[in-house]
């Protein structure tokens, strides 16, 4: 499996964005959502997803609660907090700035 290091900086952004559209997703669903929407181009490294989720939870951007799935198993569902919404827009602005900067370099150089 190719390492998706390019996701390193944008994992938080992607997770926040997904959660802003679809609240109350658990970890696996977040991962599959990223893969589906990006049409399998972006792959989240499964191991690094959870530390990232827990870190954002610790930072107060998202909150989690245990839900019972149809299968009867418990799963931890995440949703965005107000602080998370603010963080999301800040990250989006930052992302736009970076990509347009990268685009300019590609065009001009």
């Amino acid at each position: 499996m190719p390492k998706t290091d390019s996701l390193q900086g944008s994992l938080d952004l992607l997770v926040l964005k997904i959660l802003s559209r679809r609240p109350r997703l658990h970890g696996y669903a977040i991962m599959t959502a990223i893969q589906e929407i990006s049409e399998e181009i972006l792959r989240v490294e499964e191991g690094s997803l959870y530390p990232a989720l827990h870190r954002m939870e610790e930072a107060g951007w998202i909150r989690a609660e245990w839900v019972i799935k149809e299968s009867g198993r418990r799963a931890r569902a995440y949703e965005l907090t107000t602080a998370g919404r603010k963080q999301l827009s800040a990250e989006e602005v930052r992302w736009q700035a970076v990509t347009s900067a990268v685009g300019r370099v590609l065009r001009m150089a």
Binding site: H26, G27, Y28, A29, T32, E46, Y50, R73, A75, R76
Partner: peptide
């Protein structure tokens, strides 16, 4: 225990898929 349970549920989901 909670963290382990979350991991387990992830792996179970994957296997279900």
């Amino acid at each position: 225990r909670e963290i382990d349970e979350e991991f387990d549920s992830h792996i179970a989901d994957a296997i279900e898929q």
